[in-house]
């Protein structure tokens, strides 16, 4: 039996449903309605409306990614330190919320953040000033952090948990204090996980149109919202594809970093 033949279904599948569709995006993005070659759809990113949406998305995605990283790294370290033999259990804790629908979870933040919502109820009860962030960029960032935090925690955790505890002990033994140990040993050794986490958070945050719609009250348009509307409302697929190509430049940049730092693709394994 030739094992290589077994790969045929998958090769066929990935060609038809991964590569061909991507080519189609490029085809549409580089042509106009008549099918003639044009760069107009890509250059359209320069219009004030589009560049503002892209800039806004980049800004919010960057902030969310940084917050995710700052929250996730200590968390991953703590989870490793619990020396739980149930790796799967820790993973499950972060995957479990996914069984409650993504949209509903995001909607729930609406209820929590509203002027008369739960959080302000508690704050009012404690005589603290109320929190008015619903329909602002801050609420969108919160939604992004909430939805994508697991994608930062898991890759970092996966890397940290594989580091031999004695490597940390050895650094301490050789005179490094806890902070030096972190800076010189843990951090460099966990870089692949960090890069992988950054990719896994930054890309969906940059391209979301749902979170901005639900928590931004429709007032804040991100590049994702514009592309979505070109496809579902305006039906200008060429423009939508052109803007997607621009978006993909950022994604490809991210992919390259991730590919360089994680050659075996093992870090992403959940």
């Amino acid at each position: 039996m030739n094992r290589k033949l077994l790969s045929a279904p998958y090769l066929f599948w990935s060609a038809l449903f991964i590569l061909v569709p991507l080519c189609m995006v490029f085809y549409y993005g580089l042509t106009d309605k008549t099918g003639a070659f044009t760069l107009e759809n890509i250059l359209a990113i320069a219009t004030p409306e589009h560049s503002k949406a892209l800039w806004e998305a980049l800004k919010l995605a960057f902030v969310s990614t940084v917050i995710c990283l700052l929250l996730a790294y200590p968390l991953a370290m703590i989870l490793c330190g619990m020396n739980s033999h149930k790796d799967s259990f820790i993973v499950l804790i972060f995957i479990l919320p996914m069984w409650m629908n993504f949209l509903l979870r995001t909607m729930a933040w609406q209820s929590l953040l509203e002027k008369t919502g739960v959080i302000n109820g508690i704050l009012g009860f404690l005589h603290l000033p109320s929190l008015n962030i619903i329909n602002t960029p801050a609420a969108i960032v919160l939604g992004m952090v909430y939805n994508f935090l697991p994608f930062m925690v898991l890759p970092i955790y996966n890397v940290l948990v594989k580091i031999d505890k004695n490597i940390v002990n050895a650094a301490r033994d050789l005179g490094a204090n806890p902070f030096q140990t972190f800076l010189k040993i843990l951090l460099p050794l966990s870089l692949p996980g960090i890069f992988s986490g950054i990719t896994m958070v930054f890309v969906p945050a940059l391209t979301t149109f749902v979170i901005s719609r639900v928590l931004g009250g429709g007032k804040i348009l991100l590049i994702g919202n514009i592309i979505e509307e070109e496809f579902t409302k305006t039906d200008n697929w060429n423009l939508g594809s052109g803007l997607s190509i621009v978006l993909m430049l950022f994604i490809i940049f991210n992919m390259v970093i991730s590919a360089v730092t994680d050659k075996d693709g093992e870090v992403n394994a959940l």
Binding site: D164, N166, I167, N169, A170, A171, D173, L174, I185, L189
Partner: peptide, 10 residues
């Protein structure tokens, strides 16, 4: 100083 089991080199 300690020499660790399985070396623990960086």
């Amino acid at each position: 100083n300690t020499v660790f089991q399985k070396y623990a080199l960086f």
